[in-house]
């Protein structure tokens, strides 16, 4: 008697669940809070961009966007855990140039580039190279020439990080070599540069403007930025191309979901993000971090990751980081 009632109740519950859950999932996404994994700690630039995005996204989607900080291994741990989540569009993560494509080529991460559905690229930062202000190298060409004759050391935020790979690919293109000395972060690399331990520093452009005073005085000199055109935050610094080196490279962040996320949800999210990224308010907030808004759709972002992997694979093999 009692048992029957329970079974009946359960049937009703299942039926109701199907009615609410089934069609709604496809048509009225989202019906519950969205979790956004930020694979870096609180307070970092990525975390702040994610939190900047959360508020306008909540408004556009009508559901809370909950930030989950899951730091470790330069962003790989959060991504690895993302791939274990259900691909229903309710768990997404912030990925970056080096973590999506290059990292799985190097170590057992539990994922590769195909484990993700790309949603949208959000921001980018041109790669750059800096030396001490009292360094004899005035231009990028001086540096490359010096590398042809002698051995110099450089540093950047972590082995196999975006900045390290950016410089490694550039050096490989110029057929020169330099010794990489690891740092834990860009600031740690800056310490090594200023203490004279290394000769040059590779890093995202966003790290440099705060080091310059109003009249341009600084302890460092930025030799070049690998952007397509001059970077608005440092208009005096020439691009690599202007100096005769055909090399464009940037660090970027984008939103990804686990592989197999429904196409319509990906398109929905991507279009909402596009609208948000293109608002002037968002760009203005980004300027505080010296980031450029740089939206790319799912297919373009996917192509970008694949292209980066193509470029970086031979370099990884050369410096001995390719996973066997």
């Amino acid at each position: 008697m009692f048992k029957k009632q329970i079974i009946r109740l359960a049937r009703i519950a299942v039926a109701m669940g199907a009615m609410i859950g089934g069609p709604a999932a496809a048509q009225e996404y989202p019906v519950k809070p969205i979790q956004m994994i930020v694979p870096f700690g609180q307070g970092g630039a990525t975390d702040q961009v994610a939190r900047l995005m959360a508020a306008p996204l909540e408004e556009a989607l009508g559901q809370p966007v909950v930030i989950i900080n899951q730091p470790g291994a330069g962003g790989a741990i959060g991504l690895s855990n993302l791939t274990k989540a259900r691909p229903d569009g309710y768990t997404v993560a912030i990925g970056s140039d080096s973590t999506l494509g290059a990292r799985p080529l190097m170590s057992e991460t539990g994922y590769d580039a195909d484990s993700f559905t790309m949603i949208a690229r959000l921001v980018q930062i041109p790669s750059g190279v800096a030396v001490r202000a009292d360094s004899p190298y005035e231009t990028l060409n001086d540096l490359v020439q010096a590398l042809k004759t002698g051995r110099l050391a450089y540093s950047g935020s972590g082995v196999a990080s975006g900045p390290h790979l950016a410089m490694a690919v550039f050096l490989a293109q110029q057929r020169v070599q330099a010794t990489f000395v690891n740092s834990d972060s860009n600031q740690d690399g800056l310490v090594k540069l200023l203490s004279g331990e290394v000769d040059f520093l590779t890093g995202g452009g966003s790290n440099f403007p705060a080091l310059f005073g109003e009249d341009g005085q600084s302890d460092i000199r930025v030799l070049g930025l690998a952007a397509e055109e001059r970077w608005p935050f440092m208009p005096d610094v020439p691009t690599y191309r202007e100096q005769g080196f055909d090399y464009v490279n940037s660090q970027w962040f984008g939103l990804v979901a686990p592989a197999g996320a429904p196409q319509e949800i990906v398109d929905e999210l991507s279009s909402k993000i596009k609208a948000m990224v293109e608002t002037p308010e968002f760009s203005q907030r980004l300027e505080g971090f010296f980031f450029n808004a740089a939206y790319l759709g799912p297919t373009e972002m996917d192509a970008l990751v694949k292209e980066d992997m193509q470029n970086v694979r031979p370099v990884l093999a050369e410096i001995g980081l390719l996973k066997n």
Binding site: I77, V159, N182
Partner: peptide, 17 residues
């Protein structure tokens, strides 16, 4: 951090960091 090689990870991605 120096060489980028994984050490004593026992196939567990969470130990990367």
């Amino acid at each position: 951090p120096v060489s980028g090689v994984g050490r004593f990870m026992f196939g567990e991605p969470n130990l990367m960091g």
